[in-house]
Amino acid sequence: MSRKVEFELPELLTITHIQALHEQLEALLGDQDNEVIVAQGAKVGRVDTAGLQLLLVAKTAAKERQIDWVWEAPSDVLKGGAKLLGMTQRLDIH
């Protein structure tokens, strides 16, 4: 049975706060039962390149492991940062 996991991105998606997120994503993507990951981005209030880079790697890893990655209400800050860094298409975040 397909399993959908929701996880909330932190308010501060920056280099000093992403270590825990990295571990959380590894665990989520390492769980073979997970088939859909819903990334809730509404609360993201600050991003930097390190934070977006981590999401990019995680999104790529999800694709490789045939896990669907779905965005839920990504904040303008998140979308704006992705746009400036040329990641919109790759993150499929609109």
Binding site: I15, I18, Q19, H22, L25, E26, L29, A50, Q53, L54, L56, V57, A58, T60, A61
Partner: peptide, 9 residues
């Protein structure tokens, strides 16, 4: 870009 596991964030 490395894999998620090997990446140093």
């Amino acid at each position: 870009l490395p894999s998620l596991h090997l990446m140093d964030s």
